[in-house]
Design a binder for these strands. Structure first.
Lengths: 193, 193
DNA sequence: TTTATTTTGTAATGATCGGTACAAAATTAT
DNA sequence: ATAATTTTGTACCGATCATTACAAAATAAA
């Protein structure tokens, strides 16, 4: 194929942009921020992403969805998926301070975009619902297996976990501290037993 | 006192501005938005609030803190404060859709301002910690009274409730639905028994 | 009635916003 | 070599941003 060679990989631009969006959110991130972070100038930027800032944000969100999907595949392969989920929550405590302050880009987006951009908000809500469904299915399976004793409906427990996930998204910023978070996570996970 | 009479009450400007900030957040709210919402032009606006947009936001947050303080006073007067807190959570489910989508302006601010404005974020975190402390004290009192059976440390349960509050802040947007929220709230409150 | 004082409305300010225009650069196909 | 094609860097666009300047309006004090 003819033409000047690409020096800014699409995937790389999105990865770098995601980091900025994750920290500052959509509105507070400027094109100048993105250009600084990615190295790409306006020419390359708009040549690659005709949809501009919004398209890059959507793709950054989409990449995060893929990470959740990858975890879902792990769950499906496991016969004790709830233990994987619990360990996923436990691993949060071990993250460094910057990760705590960043939180979850999907949950952040729901909060930020509610009255700003209907589509972006609905998309983020959809992803959280998929994660919730993933929790629910894992719980249902372990209830059927008999490895999870509680009789509470899996749908309620799934919503309990996604609520916890979103609550943790703020608690981590209040207490970006391993020990505090570890205690709280263990306490909340004890409900699933 | 001499001078042209004030037609825009400070308190009223803040109340009107709070509504906009609550919906759109700090960054996405423009001065033009605030002027439209309050009726006050740039002249009155900057004459009243020398600190501009940021000062008005701080005062809108401060007003919300006062609402929590008022509730705290109610708690101190009560000898079953935990029941008041539970009813406070229960009342959330009954709110209308717009209230669900708005969420909690303090929790929203923590999420939005983390990498944007250190002071505004720290202030919002402080308010959440005060609410948490309010929860903790109520729990401790009812444990001493014997009206609350669980032996879990009040500090852990206080953090559990503030985590729930922040989680609810997103769950409400995912499911702005009375019945869904009612079920989840009852389930999570059942932990405190 | 005049003077002092304060608020108001409007018109500007410079800065930054997201996005576009376009020519130079760099490649492949002919 | 030359032509065709694509990316890149830069200059620029109008719109909007938060804020300021300032004169007219409206009051109370003198």
């Amino acid at each position: 194929m003819r033409g000047r060679p690409t020096i800014y990989e699409d995937a790389n631009i999105i990865k770098k942009a995601q980091e900025v969006f994750w920290q500052k959110g959509y509105s507070a991130t400027s094109l100048s921020d993105l250009q600084k972070a990615t190295g790409a100038g306006a020419g390359s930027f708009y040549n690659t992403f005709k949809g501009g800032k919004k398209e890059v944000f959507q793709k950054a969100i989409e990449e995060r969805r893929l990470a959740f999907d990858a975890f879902k595949i792990e769950l499906n392969k496991s016969d004790s998926p709830l233990e994987l989920i619990k360990n996923f929550f436990r691993s949060i405590a071990a993250a460094d301070e910057n990760e705590h302050l960043k939180g979850c880009i999907i949950a952040n987006t729901v909060v930020e975009m509610t009255f700003i951009d209907e589509k972006l908000e609905a998309n983020a809500v959809q992803i959280l619902k998929e994660v919730e469904e993933m929790f629910t299915q894992a719980i249902k399976l372990e209830q059927v297996n008999g490895t999870l004793k509680t009789k509470t409906a899996p749908e309620i427990l799934g919503k309990y976990l996604i609520t916890f996930w979103c609550g943790l998204n703020t608690l981590r910023r209040m207490y970006p501290d391993k020990n505090v978070l570890k205690n709280q996570i263990e306490m909340q996970l004890a409900v699933l037993s």
